[in-house]
């Protein structure tokens, strides 16, 4: 569906996307995970055929964006990072107007609007002007609108950023349904739980480069341990404690407010910590997440 080879985007001297290789297969949900400024949106805009690559090759749906942009975009659905809804029109009008851009007839787009409003649970708000709607509703409308042309490939740039947990779960549910119906999803996020929930495969981006690639499970298996033990001590500087823990874990990560011990058995490691006569304020054993992978690969946390 998407094939990128040494894909590069530069803005003047600045390299936002640095020679990345990406392959997205039909029917899968593929994620770009990375912190602010990693180059996720720049990549998505190239895939969406609105931003020409500076270097490298890019094929979307087997076509070349440089020459077949309109034909490709006719088969894509795009949910941009910043909504481009027409806030002065109603919910329904937004879908109608957007459908017309794809050349749908009035009758087609009318029928489609009913279906999409139902799908996005916006049926009751169909006649409301968009402006006063909640962030979650606007995001659902943007997603509904992006489906008006029955896209084969749906691009979602941070679909749930800024939404409350409930709104995020509603959106995830909708995206699952889309995936089940055969739509290929490409999404960006800086939430590892979102990536773990939604993505079959993902790449971790940082500073324009891909630093890791695989399924969430593979990434955790490869770059982290099964469990993580989090320790908090009554001190401003946690580094001295790390020295006292050598040998207890595969790896110790020092954060400003806590220590992370990478281990296959959190409880056993916790017992060993107490065995050395250390008394942390709090002890938490948990499963490894993509956040840990990211921290390991870049030395930084994902969301600041």
């Amino acid at each position: 569906m998407v094939g990128a080879h040494r894909l590069t985007k530069r803005f003047g001297e600045f390299t936002a996307v640095d020679a990345i290789d990406v392959e997205v297969r039909r029917g899968e949900a593929f994620g770009f995970l990375g912190p602010n400024g990693a180059g996720k949106s720049s990549t998505m805009r190239m895939i969406g055929c609105v931003s020409p690559p500076t270097e490298g090759s890019l094929r979307i749906l087997g076509l070349d964006p440089a020459t077949d942009g309109p034909a490709i975009r006719a088969r894509l659905g795009v949910v941009p990072q910043r909504d481009t809804l027409d806030e002065e029109l109603t919910v329904r009008e937004n879908i109608l107007v957007y459908g017309r851009y794809f050349g749908l007839s009035r009758a087609q787009v009318n029928a489609k609007a009913d279906e999409l409003l139902e799908f996005a649970q916006l049926g009751e708000r169909a006649g409301s002007v968009v402006e006063p709607l909640s962030g979650g509703m606007k995001r659902r409308l943007t997603i509904a609108r992006s489906l008006v042309n029955d896209p084969e490939l749906l691009l979602l740039d941070e679909p749930t950023t800024g939404l409350d947990p409930q709104a995020r779960h509603v959106l995830w549910d909708r995206l699952f349904r889309l995936k089940r119906s055969g739509v290929t999803l490409v999404l960006t996020t800086h939430y590892m739980d979102e990536a773990e929930q939604l993505c079959d495969r993902l790449v971790v981006m940082d500073g324009g480069r891909i630093v890791a690639e695989g399924s969430p499970r593979e990434l955790i298996a490869l770059h982290s341990t099964r469990e993580v033990l989090e320790l908090r001590f009554a001190a401003d500087d946690h580094a001295p404690y790390a020295a006292k823990l050598t040998g207890l874990a595969d790896r110790v990560e020092v954060l400003p407010d806590r220590l992370l011990l990478y281990t296959d058995d959190g409880d056993a490691t916790a017992a060993a910590v107490h065995g050395r006569g250390l008394a942390p304020l709090s002890v938490l054993a948990r499963r490894s997440t993509l956040e840990d992978v990211f921290l390991h690969l870049t030395g930084r946390t994902l969301v600041d």
Binding site: G48, V50, G69, P70, A71, R73, A74, L76, V78, P80, R82, T84, L85, D86, E87, E88, Y98, Y101, F102, G103, N149
Partner: peptide
């Protein structure tokens, strides 16, 4: 402000 052009450019329009 309303960014209608951006919306249009995500579709087949150029």
């Amino acid at each position: 402000w309303h960014r209608q052009y951006h919306a249009m450019l995500a579709t087949p329009l150029g």
